[in-house]
Design a protein around this nucleic acid. Structure first.
Length: 280
DNA sequence: ATTGCCTGCGTGG
DNA sequence: CCACGCAGGCAAT
């Protein structure tokens, strides 16, 4: 299931680079190095829908629709009220610690970390006794980076690898099904502003997106879209804090610290799940 | 769909 | 306090 992601990523990369020419399935398959039949099957297994449908989710038009359909309802945003359309979302609580507080109180913390395969590549996951404190997707060119930033964020902690502990955790994060949502507790450090932003992200339902501007409004700092973007870029807990669900107001994706293809993949996958459940 | 100009704002020195 | 850089926005093309 995970080795597939590499292929998916390649396919997305190719499509993004050739948007204007609307590549056919065959061309995409060619670029990835698979037969079109194989690629078709791969998509179905990975996303649950046909490639054609999936590729629609990659377009700017689609993203714009998601943004504007929300605007019609309300732009000032009550984040998180669309609970009926919520699917495959986790219930996440967040415990925030300022860097200052951490310095005095946060010693003798033990952190377990591990790397596990998931739907979107390999994930680096770390947790204290109190909760998850980091989720990063592994860049195979910089495999040491996540551990490095973990150490930097928690300089006084005892950090140990514990695959046996992390593997089931990873499983429950990435493989929970819509009918049995899991509960997670997160432990993060950040400035007040950053924490506010991250909390706002938690209220974006799976399968939908918001613009940076909308998040800025939601935290009552309507002109701070840029600062919001910066804060989002520092999100230490990928996926569970769904920073991938924030895009530019133009419908373009904006950036992603773990790679644009991955952002696109996660968004499209979530859109696909939504689509499966709620066709038409 | 692409480019370039402009901006406000949190962050770190 | 100031300078910096940013995962943005918008208008012009």
């Amino acid at each position: 299931m995970n080795a597939d992601y590499a292929k998916i990523e390649k396919a997305i990369q190719f499509i993004r680079g050739n948007l204007q020419s609307q590549p056919s399935l065959e061309e995409v398959a060619d670029a990835v190095g698979l037969s079109s039949f194989h690629l078709q099957r791969l998509f179905r297994e990975w996303a649950g829908i046909s490639p054609k449908r999936f590729l629609q989710f990659l377009t700017v038009v689609h993203a714009k629709q998601l943004l504007s359909s929300l605007n019609v309802l309300d732009t000032t945003i009550e984040l998180g009220l669309s609970s009926q359309s919520r699917l495959h979302d986790h219930f996440v609580t967040l415990e925030a610690v300022t860097p200052g507080e951490f310095k005095s109180a946060g010693e003798n913390v033990k952190i377990n970390f591990g790397i596990a395969a998931c739907h979107f590549g390999r994930a680096f996951i770390a947790a204290t006794g109190r909760g998850v404190c980091q989720i990063s997707f592994l860049d195979e060119n910089q495999p040491g980076e996540p551990l490095q930033s973990l150490k930097q964020a928690w300089p006084n902690a005892a950090i140990v690898e514990n695959r046996a502990l992390i593997a089931p955790l990873s499983d429950s994060i990435f493989n929970s099904d819509a009918n049995s949502p899991r509960k997670f507790h997160l432990q993060v450090q950040g400035s007040n502003f950053q924490v506010k932003v991250w909390q706002a992200l938690l209220k974006i339902p799976s399968g939908t997106v918001r613009s940076y501007q909308q998040i800025a409004k939601a935290i009552d700092r309507p002109s701070a879209s840029r600062a919001v973007a910066n804060a989002i870029g520092k999100n230490p807990i990928g996926y569970l804090i769904p920073c991938h669900r924030v895009i530019k107001s133009t419908g373009l994706l904006g950036g992603y610290q773990w790679g644009m293809e991955r952002k696109q993949a996660i968004l499209s996958w979530e859109a696909a799940q939504m689509d499966l459940r709620n066709p038409g």
